[in-house]
Design a protein around this nucleic acid. Structure first.
Lengths: 144, 144
DNA sequence: CTGCATCCCTTTCGATACTG
DNA sequence: CAGTATCGAAAGGGATGCAG
């Protein structure tokens, strides 16, 4: 039993069938799903989110980002930045100095994205404790 | 050369050193990073995002979700729902009918999260075309 | 209908070593 | 400093079969 999480100590309904029949609400998406998924999975990547947040108050250089984002490997930072660049969210600027210097900066598009992303980060910070509490509660119910 | 994206046809600076010396802005996070990461990587999971969006207008049952989220496997839906349940974002309610019925619904915490998540989804929908355009532009520059 | 377990392939990612 | 290449370990995820 390592592949699956244990089933929850499931809530039981007060009465057997709170709401009847099949649900006929419209399907909010269905076709959309596909294209949007590729955008969301960029945001979905936790490193992308961090990089965007780090860049939200101005350009940063490679190693600066690497130091700021505690725990990212050089490889992942490179990959993440390439992905963001490909999506038109950051620009890459080389200064042909010695030693070389490369700056990354959000584009207008990237700055636009950084708004909802920061909202998400803010929410995450604010509710981190609640979530961790929920996690330990869940784990205890399914172990102890 | 399959592991790395090709380096961008990089922007060159107008003048060699637009801004001087080392950047002394404060590090926006550093310790935070760790805990918040675990929350963001739940959001980071593309399936979680979709499930949250699907649940944002009321409870849904298992197969309903499965049908709505085009392309998710049963396994991943189960895993995703367990994860969300563990984090206190959704509740799981069993109706001991035949055949059995299980409803999933956002908790208050989950509904709170759904706000920034939907903002993100909205942004993704609105800028999907810009991003796809940027992608083809990038790919062409690095191939053709 | 809901969901757990197993097999197995694919992708991801960190560590390491090497260039301009 | 800012990458690139390669390798091996680990995680992700589909298919299938079985159970309540």
């Amino acid at each position: 039993m390592d592949t699956y999480l244990k089933p929850a100590h499931t809530d039981l309904p007060a009465s057997p069938r709170p709401y009847p029949g099949p649900d006929q609400r419209p399907d909010p998406n269905h076709a959309d799903c596909r294209g949007v998924a590729s955008v969301l999975s960029r945001v979905g990547d936790k490193w992308s989110v961090f990089v965007i947040m780090m860049l939200s108050d101005g350009p940063r250089r490679f190693n600066e980002l690497k130091r700021m984002i505690n725990g990212i490997s050089q490889r992942m930072l490179t990959l993440t930045l390439r992905g963001l660049e490909r999506d038109g969210l950051v620009t890459r600027t080389i200064f042909p100095t010695i030693p070389p210097r490369v700056d990354y900066e959000l584009t207008d598009l990237g700055r636009g994205l950084s708004r909802p992303v920061e909202a998400l980060g803010k929410w995450a910070k604010e509710h981190l404790d609640q979530i961790e509490a929920a996690r330990t509660r869940f784990d205890q119910r399914n172990e102890g």
